[in-house]
């Protein structure tokens, strides 16, 4: 798949319109607001952890942005809701590596799930930040949940 269809795979277009996890979150332990100053896209990620703080019970986000950033946040929710915090962080790193690949290599579909649809974004350096916006916000929210910044 090449060109625009490689970038805007149907799964991305679908998620950009039917956005999973978009909205407020009650009893969140942590939240983080992330801004992409070059385009003005912004997003607030909120997480609620289980009592042991090892699992993400619920995740939700609110934001404005392009189809890539909105779809990425939507896919993120599907992938990290109910997972262990450490697994979510590992996935974020895996996602980052894929986006830094400049379209090279074969991303691990088993690990990335639907997020593999963003592999095409890695060829568009100006759009990598769009795809990363929600994941960076998630990482920061997790870091906050483990520090005194928790809500």
């Amino acid at each position: 798949m090449s060109g625009l269809d490689g970038l805007y795979q149907q799964i991305i277009l679908d998620h950009s319109k039917a956005r999973h996890g978009e909205g407020p979150l009650e009893h969140a332990q942590a939240e983080h607001h992330e801004l992409n100053p070059t385009c003005g896209d912004e997003l607030t990620m909120r997480i609620r952890l289980d009592p042991t703080h090892e699992r993400i019970d619920e995740v939700a986000w609110q934001g404005n942005g392009c189809s890539i950033s909105m779809a990425s946040a939507s896919v993120l929710v599907d992938l990290v809701r109910g997972t262990r915090v450490d697994d979510a962080l590992a996935l974020a790193e895996e996602f980052r590596m894929m986006l830094r690949s400049r379209g090279e290599g074969e991303p691990d579909e088993e690990r990335l799930g639907d997020a593999i649809a963003f592999h095409g974004v890695s060829k568009y350096v100006m759009r990598v930040k769009c795809a990363m916006l929600s994941w960076v916000a998630l990482e920061a929210a997790i870091a906050k949940s483990r520090s005194h910044d928790a809500l």
């Binding site: 060109g3 942005g65 189809s67 568009y124």
Partner: peptide, 13 residues
């Protein structure tokens, strides 16, 4: 209904 960055990407293509 379409973000300017998506518009720009489409036009670029």
């Amino acid at each position: 209904g379409v973000h300017a960055h998506d518009v720009g990407q489409f036009l670029d293509e």
